[in-house]
Design a protein around this nucleic acid. Structure first.
Lengths: 192, 192
DNA sequence: ACGCTTATTATACATATGTACAATAAGCCC
DNA sequence: GGGCTTATTGTACATATGTATAATAAGCGT
């Protein structure tokens, strides 16, 4: 666990390139040899760190959407706002995410982690969308539902990217506002 | 130019990690020393390759949107479809894009390239959106227009990501269809 | 043919890097 | 406390890697 946090720190500070076994060990306050005691090789450590990071990132939005008091639309809005606010939306998380996705091609295990977390997040989008539509007494085919989930997921991903990398172009909370309005538009909800 | 193409090939094949000076030179059919004759260092070669790649990717969508015969909405649709179809949307381009963005932190010059191409693409979105709104006699503030452009840009980015990485989950052309419907919804256009 | 610029190679070097392994320290159960 | 498992270190190695530089070939205008 210490090693995973140290790996995150190294990647955030200098990107994948600088995240060497030695630097990670130094950041964790141990010697390089220890890493191989816990992980068969460096890619395995990266894989564990990737998994941890994705879980960490999905936690807040999913938690926000579990507000049992709220209605479906409100829950979706909470989910969107949590996804498009700090700390989920941050240069730090983008750096981690980008670093790992760039390794998918050379490390198949990382591709599997990505696929898992992607499907999980998209399913969360799908559930929330489904509840909203049910609340609105709107019946749609599963295919249309899947497509709506993909679209909602896409807006969130895209705005998340913009927010992580160009937060200076937006005011505080503006991206989340755009996200909520966009999702409403996608689902045909009349905002205001 | 040969070197830039060789760099692309190496990154696509094995990711940034395997894109070493020697492998790039081998792919280009030259010796490693030649690279330093044209580029001060490796990061500079990466920078040039990134710029080339982004230009390459923006070409088709921008070209498609220049159809002078078509109306504003149709031009926007052509733009969306080109952005969300092969070859713009492909594992190849994703691998290139992901590799370079993961280096932004450690190579500031790459961050500048990213910022430029991002702003350019977003502005293209903005122009197309503005024309559609004008065609619809819909007046909006510049701020709202910027936000709409950001949202359209986000949907395109997000769907592009999904399509590059999970094309097996969609049928041919389905992502582009979703994109067009989503953009229509964002702009309040009644599809069909 | 000459001279100059550009293209290209060959070789070398210092260092960074992932990995391996034997040795030592620490924790813990009986 | 003895003995066993686990945690941790130190060191070594083979190799990959970016970079530097001198030497050579090629192109080309005059």
């Amino acid at each position: 666990m210490e090693l995973i946090l140290a790996t995150q720190a190294c990647i955030v500070e200098g990107g994948i390139r600088q995240a060497t076994v030695r630097k990670i060990a130094a950041a964790a306050g141990v010697t390089p040899g220890l890493i191989r005691h816990y992980f068969p090789d460096k890619d395995d450590l990266f894989c564990a760190t990737y998994k941890f990071t994705m879980t960490e990132m999905a936690r807040l939005p999913v938690l926000a959407a579990q507000d049992i008091e709220a209605g479906a639309i409100e829950r979706l809005h909470l989910f969107v706002r949590a996804s498009l606010s700090s700390p989920v939306m941050s240069p730090r998380h983008h750096q981690l995410w980008a670093s790992f996705t760039s390794l998918m091609r050379s490390v198949p295990a990382l591709a599997a982690v990505h696929r898992d977390s992607y499907l999980e997040f998209r399913q969360e989008c799908g559930s929330l969308v489904a509840e909203v539509l049910r609340e609105q007494r709107q019946a749609v085919s599963t295919r249309k539902l899947d497509q709506l989930a993909a679209a909602v997921n896409a807006v969130l991903d895209g705005l998340w990217l913009e927010g992580c990398l160009a937060s200076d172009l937006f005011e505080a909370g503006e991206i989340a506002d755009i996200g909520i309005r966009s999702v409403d538009a996608l689902l045909g909800i009349d905002s205001n």
